[in-house]
Design a binder for these strands. Structure first.
Length: 1093
RNA sequence: GGGCGGUUAGCUCAGCUGGUUAGAGCGCACGCCUGAUAAGCGUGAGGUCGGUGGUUCAAGUCCACUACCGCCCA
């Protein structure tokens, strides 16, 4: 006999990693991703932007997190009938690449590389960028992320760069780009700009000078508020000969560059008399501390508010410097409007009096905050050093800046300006490669005037849906509110060159917006040229009789990535916003993919990609370029520590995939915590996810296949839902509910909420539906009932395959292939080509759902009661009394009384109506209702209710009558809905009660029940033996036995039941033959002999 | 120094607009089931909800202050 082919492929122990490899092979062979791309999309485009990672490092666990969230919604939307373009992208320029290459080459400063060296360096960068591209591609694919890697945009390509130039040109034309100074951290000597990252590790504790200097005030310029204030305090200005403001600094070498002295507008300042140096102004808070430095008492004569002193002029410590540097012609020169050019008191919020005198020396060349203030007061810059940190002024000229401190302090002393020179210990950054202290230095820089668009940036942000919501007005909103101009230039090599050409005399600039434009300027065709340095540097041209050269800087890489909505399609527009000739198709592609419906990255991108995207689109288009954004929290280790290579707590993704499967990792990441929260990650947690959700789902699936292969149900034509048993109709209703929940959650980008709904369903499916219905799948002679059961479970599993497809694409595919493709040859080739299920409201029987809810709840209570009683489940109990708070639920309990009885092994289930004899009740106020109505009287009402006879209240409520109470002489009438009744455990039962649900077991075991229990013991004994013999579940047997005592009696009464359960064709008393098993205890002894029929 | 987030059971996390006895999973202990079986299920113990003060009939939830942890910025 030829064995018939099984309807379904046998399902064994789950091996998720192997399953995933098979699914990957299937996808590849059948080009499923490409087919999903070509699938009909009646709902149009759902726009997704891939935030480009840099591929120069290894993909790590946090990339799995981002990629999982980037994958789930496009998959979902595709199933819902959208088309999703999943164009990959790579960020290729910038510092991380340069640093990696520098390390590799072992070069240090690159202050002045020759063009040949730049060419070589950039070539290395270009190669290095994709050092790990293979790993990235393999990893992306392996984790089940569908991304078009073949057509990925790459930021270093000429097309991309040209689009970036085009964007810059359009900003340039609108006057959005300016050149200004920016304070950057330099490594002096090599004069190389460092990044924050490079200096972050370089902080050291050092002793630096702490110097208090007198800046003599020019009394003739005393502001009126100061005059008035002093007068009111009885001080005459004329008497304050030699009055000086006391300024503090830790960088004496910057004193020659002083242009302002800053005070806090709200702070209180004191006018004091020093026995040693005369009149001084300093922060009141600092008076005692500063006096102590010179071991003298400072006598406070008057108080001034910081704001009053604004504009008060002083004589700087090195007044000759400003003339020497040619910034002004004479000392004390004034501007056309009569105001001083520099050297006056300014207001600044950042000033404190914690250290120093509460008056901050301002040398704007050497501090970012100082530069801000200088801009505000329109004060010029005094460059006391060059960009290598060499002093250019004073007698210390030619010295390294740090070495100038001593001489300058001596000089201050000679000039009679020094109040005190000491030392302070603080943290200061050093460049660890040169060992030099960092020099903060104002360098000319290119800016985009984003601060002019603060309002627009903020308003456009209002249109974006942020997940989690607090980012919108928190981290991102605040950042926009305090927006400062975007510094876009970098003195680097590997980046998009700034397309700005400057005339030789520095007076004219030209921004180039395309290769074609550059060709025209240069008078030759440049279409083949590499748009990187050094090649673009070599292009010069003459216009209006002047030779133009490119400025040396390259572009901030964040501009590269923020330009991807346009540059990924090589968008090229003219000044009117129309596509340049020949780029119409690019334009069309861009329009179709702008703005994005959804993007997702980790929280560190608020100031990175999220910002650059937002800034560019707001400035050029006046609208946001993404509508929904998930901002992921960081991944940390199990102890909440950052994962880092040095700590050795990094969890590699690929080994996790190989051990537990990508689905398990994905599931964990989706459901572990809110996406915006920091997530603790460890192998153990992934394992938990695998065992919990995926394992249970797999179990149900394998259960189905096991029995379906035996029974061969007809799944092509399934019985109508209305004609199926109630239990099936319940599962169908529950399934509709699930579809609604998952869909609703995914619509609002809540993967976790959807996942939780799936978990709850799978748990109920396994531990309620399958558990309760096992018998219907095994040896069920009732064909209609059996077919209904298979149909229902099959539908549930198929629907689950679809609902889980976006989350766990592999296991979903495995289910689909095995369950659907064999039954419905017309079905889509892959679950990922299937349509998202729609809930059928007709099938969602809410009454049934409520009733089954009560059943499950009561069963739980009864299990608890049984555990307390100590009587094991195998022993039948005569009766369960039960009730629930609502009429509907009580009906449900009656309706499913047989299910409950069987589940709990009780003979009878009795549902008690409200107010029945055996029940007593706790009477509680319905607080949400009563609280609003009675306020302060709630505690009294509560107390009064507790006094009442519960059964009487129950009867009143049952009759729909209101309840009358007497509270402190006043009558209070409560509606039936305003009180809650909770049934209490009746006397003489082992019971559990909770919120109105009750399960009370009658623990009384008579002879008949006892024998029945013993019979179940015997059944179990034989079943165990069958298993030990290695029989198949369908094998028939013959039984022989010898029994004494109660067991003999149990067999007499329940022998046929035993035969039925154990598939025994005969049960004969006699010498046990074949496989022998026995049992002996105080109830008697029994020996069985089993032989295969 | 500023901004944002977090702090709930041994661990990982829920807890909607304030409302009855604060939940889940894992772990632990105990038990059940035995034709989903080298699986499955249940029950139980375990929490002063970081702290203090306030608002309220009622606070894990709202307000103020504060401590600690994390991230970002300076």
């Amino acid at each position: 006999m030829v064995e018939e082919k099984k309807p379904f492929q046998a399902v064994g122990e789950p091996n998720f990693p192997r399953l995933e490899e098979e699914v990957l092979r299937f996808w590849k062979e059948h080009r499923i991703f490409a087919k999903s791309d070509g699938k009909e999309a009646p709902k149009g485009e759902f726009v997704f932007y891939e935030g480009p990672p840099t591929a120069n490092g290894q993909p790590a666990m946090h990339h799995v997190l981002a990629r999982a969230f980037k994958d789930i919604f496009p998959r979902y939307k595709t199933m819902r009938g959208y088309h999703v373009t999943r164009k990959g992208g790579w960020d290729t320029h910038g510092l991380p690449v340069e640093i990696a290459v520098e390390k590799k080459l072992g070069v240090l400063g690159r202050k002045s590389l020759s063009p040949e060296q730049i060419a070589e360096f950039n070539q290395q960068c270009r190669e290095w960028v994709f050092a790990n591209i293979e790993d990235w591609n393999r990893f992306t694919e392996r984790m089940g992320m569908w991304l078009d890697l073949e057509n990925a945009y790459i930021t270093y390509t000429n097309e991309y760069i040209e689009s970036v130039w085009n964007l810059l040109k359009r900003m340039w034309d609108r006057g959005m780009i300016v050149r200004d100074y920016k304070v950057v951290p330099l490594s002096p000597r090599i004069s190389t700009t460092l990044s924050q990252n490079e200096i972050a590790d370089g902080y050291r504790e050092v002793d630096d000078p702490s110097v208090y200097v007198r800046f003599p005030l020019r009394l003739e310029t005393t502001p009126k508020p100061v005059r008035d204030s002093l007068e009111a305090q009885g001080i005459r200005l004329e008497e304050l000969e030699g009055l000086a403001i006391l300024v503090w600094t830790t960088t004496p070498w910057t004193l020659p560059s002083n242009t302002l002295a800053a005070v806090h507008p709200e702070m209180d300042y004191a006018l004091v008399r020093s026995p040693s140096v005369g009149y001084l102004v300093l922060a009141s808070q600092a008076v005692e501390r500063v006096g102590a430095l010179r071991k003298e008492g400072l006598e406070v004569l008057a108080h001034l508010r910081g704001a009053e002193m604004e504009g008060w002029e002083y004589l700087p410590p090195f007044p000759e410097v400003c003339v020497e540097l040619g910034v002004v012609r004479t000392q004390g020169e004034r501007r056309e409007d009569g105001k001083p050019v520099m050297h006056f008191i300014a207001l600044a919020e950042f000033v404190t009096a914690e250290d120093g005198s509460g008056v901050a020396h301002q040398a704007p060349v050497y501090g970012a905050e100082d530069l801000e203030i200088a801009r505000k007061y329109e004060v010029p810059l005094l460059f006391g050093t060059d960009e290598y940190g060499i002093m250019q002024v004073t007698e210390e000229r030619g010295k390294f800046f740090k070495d100038a401190d001593k001489g300058l302090i001596r000089s201050l002393k000679e000039r009679g300006l020094l109040y005190h020179a000491g030392q302070i210990r603080h943290r200061y950054p050093f460049h660890d490669r040169t060992g030099d202290p960092i020099l903060y230095f104002a360098k000319p820089s290119w800016y985009i005037k984003t601060s002019n668009f603060r309002q627009e940036l903020y308003e456009n942000n209002e249109k974006i849906n942020w997940i989690p919501p607090h980012i919108k007005h928190g981290r991102f909103g605040n950042w926009l509110k305090d927006n400062v101009d975007w510094a876009i230039s970098r003195e680097r090599y590997w980046g998009t060159p700034l397309p700005f050409w400057v005339s030789e005399d520095g007076s004219e600039y030209i921004c180039v917006g395309s290769v074609k434009e550059l060709s025209e300027l240069a008078g030759r065709d440049l279409s083949g040229i590499d748009l990187h340095r050094p090649y673009v540097d070599e292009i010069t041209f003459v216009k209006n009789g002047k030779t133009f050269r490119r400025v040396p800087e390259v572009l901030d890489v964040w501009f590269d990535s923020g330009a991807m909505p346009y540059a990924q399609w090589h968008l090229m527009l003219d000044e009117k916003g129309q596509p340049l000739p020949g780029t119409e198709e690019n334009y069309r592609l861009w329009r179709r993919h702008f703005p994005a419906d959804y993007i997702c990255e980790a929280i560190d991108q608020t100031r990175g990609w999220f910002y650059s995207l937002h800034a560019i689109s707001t400035l050029l288009y006046g609208e946001p370029c993404f509508k929904n954004v998930i901002c992921l929290g960081h991944l940390v280790d199990e102890k909440g520590h950052k994962m880092s290579k040095s700590k050795g707590n990094v969890v590699e993704p690929l080994p996790m995939f190989d051990k537990y499967g990508a689905d398990a990792v994905r599931w964990y990441l989706f459901t572990a915590s809110e996406p915006g929260e920091q997530k603790r990650f460890s192998e153990r947690l992934v394992q938990e996810a695998q065992r919990g959700f995926l394992g249970t789902l797999w179990n149900v699936y394998s259960f189905f296949v096991l029995y379906a292969n035996l029974d061969r149900p007809n799944l092509q034509s399934r019985p109508e839902v209305q004609k199926r048993p109630e239990m099936d109709r319940w599962l169908v209703a529950r399934l509709q509910q699930l579809i609604e929940q998952v869909t609703e959650r995914l619509e609002v980008y809540d993967a976790r909420g959807a996942g939780k709904a799936l978990e709850a369903f799978v748990d109920e499916l396994s531990n309620w539906y399958v558990r309760r219905n096992r018998r219907r799948f095994w040896k069920n002679e009732d064909a209609a009932d059996r077919e209904a059961a298979y149909a229902t479970l099959w539908e549930a599993l198929v629907t689950l395959a679809k609902l889980t497809a976006p989350f766990t694409p592999f296991i979903a595919e495995a289910l689909w292939q095995n369950l659907v493709r064999s039954v419905e040859p017309e079905a889509p080739e892959s679950v990922h080509l299937a349509e998202w299920p729609e809930a059928d409201p007709q099938l969602k029987d809410t009454t049934l759902l409520t009733q089954m809810g009560a059943v499950v709840r009561v069963v739980g209570l009864a299990r608890s009661a049984r555990a307390i009683s100590g009587v094991k489940t195998r022993m039948p109990l005569p009766r369960l009394l039960t009730t629930a708070p609502s009429e509907t639920e009580r009906e449900g309990l009656s309706h499913f009384a047989d299910e409950i009885a069987e589940e709990l092994n009780v003979k009878q289930v009795e549902v008690l109506e409200l107010g029945e004899e055996v029940l007593s009740y706790r009477v509680l106020p319905n607080l949400p209702l009563l609280g609003r109505k009675y306020g302060k009287r709630v505690p009294q009402i509560r107390a009064a209710l507790a006094e009442l006879d519960g059964r009487m209240v129950a009867q009143t409520v049952k009759a729909g009558r209101s309840l009358s109470l007497e509270i402190e002489g006043e009558r209070v009438v409560l509606e039936p809905s305003e009180v809650l009744l909770e049934a209490l455990s009746p006397e003489g039962f082992t019971a559990q009660e909770e919120e109105g649900y009750l399960a009370a077991l009658e623990v009384r075991i008579d002879e008949a029940l006892f024998l029945e229990g013993l019979a179940r013991d015997l059944i179990r004994l034989v079943q165990q033996a069958r298993k030990e013999m290695g029989l198949a579940v369908s094998d028939r047997i013959h039984l022989t036995y010898q029994a004494q005592g109660k067991y003999a009696e149990a067999l007499r009464q329940h022998g046929s039941r035993l035969q039925e359960e154990t598939l025994a064709l005969s049960l004969l008393e006699g010498e046990p033959a074949g496989f022998v098993t026995e049992l002996s205890d105080e109830e008697g002894t029994v020996r069985f002999g089993l032989s295969k029929a």
